[in-house]
Amino acid sequence: MIILALMGFMAVIGIAMARIRDLFAVVILGGIFSLLGAAVYVILDAVDVGFTEAAVGAGISTVLLLGTLALTTSEEKVTPESRSLVSIVAVIVTGAVLVYGTLDMPRYGDPTAPINHHVAPRYLEKSGDEVGLPNVVTSVLASYRGYDTLGETFVIFTAAVGVLAILGRSRRQPKRKRMKARKG
């Protein structure tokens, strides 16, 4: 029940985000959305994910978005009516297909679902002896799936290089050139 209530809040916030045109308010609502998501993760037993979402999703993302607003503009233009109508149709069709797809899925919390019968029981039974950490998520992340985590660090490194390449030294020069062009 608590989960459904929290998710209901999230849906309301999501709709508010779609309707509000003040981008500052939208970004802050996005932070609240992430934080509610973190609460739901904790209730669903994913405590590590909850921590990470609260710190990274609700924290760092919001800061990045606010920084972007400071560098650009914080007011959104009105979108034409026709465009939102087409989008609503597309969204409803996609949503209906997805709901149809869920009909075959195992029910919520079912211990016999296929997802709980492959490697997960092995991790839960053996990781205590093999890795020696009480937190199974840490064992899987750092040991059994260490290469995944290594790949993740490569992704972050690439993104950091990309951001520096886009926003680095060259950012101010074109602006000056444009100013000159405007004056001339």
């Binding site: 994910v49 990470t52 990274v56 999703g57 490697v119 839960l124 992704v155 972050i156 993104a159």
Partner: peptide
Amino acid sequence: PLPHVLILTAIVVGVA
């Protein structure tokens, strides 16, 4: 625990 691990990775990649 397996979805938790996958999503931990995904959150960080998402921020990137």
